[in-house]
């Protein structure tokens, strides 16, 4: 078998952390693949949920947007944004929701920027905007965050505060209900210290190391607790390649 790629490791590291019976709020791209993999591997009664109104999507084919027609086929309910955000905001359902998100920048408390680099009014680089990710992070019981590991992305101060984490950029406790549980990158995973709520390195992928990771983080990071992330099972990798993303649209 061809060597496992960093993106495949990311997807399967996230999939492992999705629990059976959870409602999985997915963004576009790699987070959908993680939800699809979890549902097919161990979390068979998890519910894939999209802000666009598709609830318990079957996903016979990988969607390329949360608005892709593929999200609705065979779903339990197909509705719209008012309904899906209402369900998400309602504490009865929110307590069962895990949100799987990505962003352009992250700070030590798990706050995210998906809006711009530079000054907000006249940015150097503009991104699409927060969409429904910020809403999901506020209401979901916990969040799994995908990030590419780069110094310019792991920053002490965000250029724009789109999505709340554990503590606000000033250090005040966040008012959001959602809590970032894990940050999954192409070299390893990060979690948050129970008391300070700052990020620490939890695991590194085979082929990487705590030293190499530390160099790519733009703030002080505790790497002392890091363990090697287990390699994914061959069958899981096979599932990604043959069944979930056979056209290599995202992986």
């Amino acid at each position: 078998m061809r060597e496992v790629t960093p993106r495949e490791r990311m997807v399967l590291a996230a999939a492992r952390r999705i629990r059976d019976g959870e409602i999985v709020f997915c963004g576009t791209g790699i987070s959908m693949i993680a939800a699809m993999a979890a549902k097919r591997i161990h979390a068979r009664s998890s519910v894939i949920f999209f802000e666009t109104g598709a609830i318990d999507s079957r996903l016979e084919e990988l969607p390329l947007s949360v608005g892709d027609p593929r999200v609705v086929t065979g779903a339990s309910v197909g509705t719209g944004l008012v309904d899906s955000f209402a369900i998400l905001q309602n504490p009865r359902t929110a307590s069962r929701v895990v949100a799987v998100l990505g962003a352009a920048q992250i700070d030590p408390y798990g706050n995210l920027n998906s809006t711009c680099i530079g000054d907000y009014a006249r940015p150097k680089v503009r991104f699409p905007g927060s969409g429904g990710a910020s809403d999901a992070a506020v209401y979901a019981a916990r969040t799994i965050i995908f990030m590419r590991l780069e110094k310019r992305r792991f920053v002490e101060r965000l250029d724009y505060f789109s999505t709340p984490g554990w503590r606000n950029p000033g250090g005040e406790p966040s008012l959001a209900h959602g809590r970032p549980e894990v940050v999954i990158t192409d070299e390893g995973t990060f979690m948050f210290n129970e008391s300070s709520r700052r990020m620490y390195l939890a695991s590194y992928f085979p082929g990487s190391s705590p030293e190499s990771i530390e160099d790519k983080v733009g703030f002080d990071i505790d790497t002392g607790r890091a363990v090697e992330e287990p390699s994914p099972a061959h069958e899981s990798v096979d599932l990604l390649r043959k069944h979930i993303d056979p056209q290599h649209l995202i992986l």
Binding site: F127, P128, G129
Partner: peptide, 23 residues
């Protein structure tokens, strides 16, 4: 007035004209 401007995987960094207009 907007929450997200783009075509998802077909313009990963955001809609090109939207981005340019703001930048």
């Amino acid at each position: 007035e907007v929450a997200y401007g783009g075509t998802a995987r077909f313009s990963p960094g955001g809609g090109p004209c939207f981005r340019r207009a703001i930048e």
